[in-house]
Amino acid sequence: MIVWLMVILSGLLIITLTQFKNRWWRWTSSVIMVIALLASAAMIVANTTYHWGLTTKTTTTSHRIYSAGSSQSPAGMLITKELGTDSGRYVLMYKDTATAKKAQAHFVPNTANTVKAVKQRATYRQVAGKQATVTTTTKRWVWQSSTAKFWLKIGTTPNLLISRRSVVTVPKQTWLVVTATQAQQLAKLQKSMTATQQAAQATTLKVALKARLGHYIQIHPQATKAQQQAYLQQQTAILTVQQLQKQLN
Rank of each mutant, 00 (worst) to 15 (best):
L152C: 05
T138S: 14
L5M: 12
A75P: 06
R212I: 06
A103C: 06
W4T: 12
A75N: 08
V3T: 15
P74R: 00
V108A: 08
Q182V: 09
F150N: 12
G214R: 04
A100Y: 03
Q197Y: 03
K225Q: 07
I15W: 14
Q227P: 11
P74T: 00
I162V: 06
K246T: 15
I65E: 01
Q185T: 14
L38P: 07
T133P: 01
R125P: 04
L83Q: 08
V241K: 03
T136Y: 05
K149L: 11
T18L: 13
Q227A: 11
T136L: 04
G155F: 09
Y50H: 10
L5T: 15
I15C: 06
R121D: 05
T56Q: 15
I14L: 04
T49S: 11
W25P: 07
S71E: 13
Q104N: 11
L83M: 09
L9R: 05
Q245T: 11
T99N: 09
L152M: 12
T99H: 10
R23N: 11
W52T: 07
L209G: 02
L5A: 12
K119W: 12
R165H: 14
R89P: 06
P171K: 08
I154E: 10
D86R: 09
S145K: 09
Q243H: 15
T181W: 15
S67C: 02
I217Q: 08
D96I: 12
A211K: 12
L38Y: 08
G76L: 02
R64K: 15
I35W: 08
V207Q: 09
T56K: 12
G129H: 03
A46F: 02
A122W: 00
V108M: 06
I14E: 03
T48S: 15
K225C: 01
K149S: 14
H215M: 12
Q245C: 08
W27T: 05
A68K: 06
A148K: 14
K210D: 08
V134W: 02
T60N: 10
A223C: 00
K21R: 14
R125K: 11
A199C: 01
T97G: 04
I217H: 04
G155T: 10
Q201K: 14
T157N: 13
A187T: 07
A199F: 00
K210S: 10
D86P: 08
S192L: 07
T138E: 13
T99D: 07
V127G: 07
R125V: 11
T169G: 02
M6D: 02
T179F: 00
V134F: 05
T169E: 04
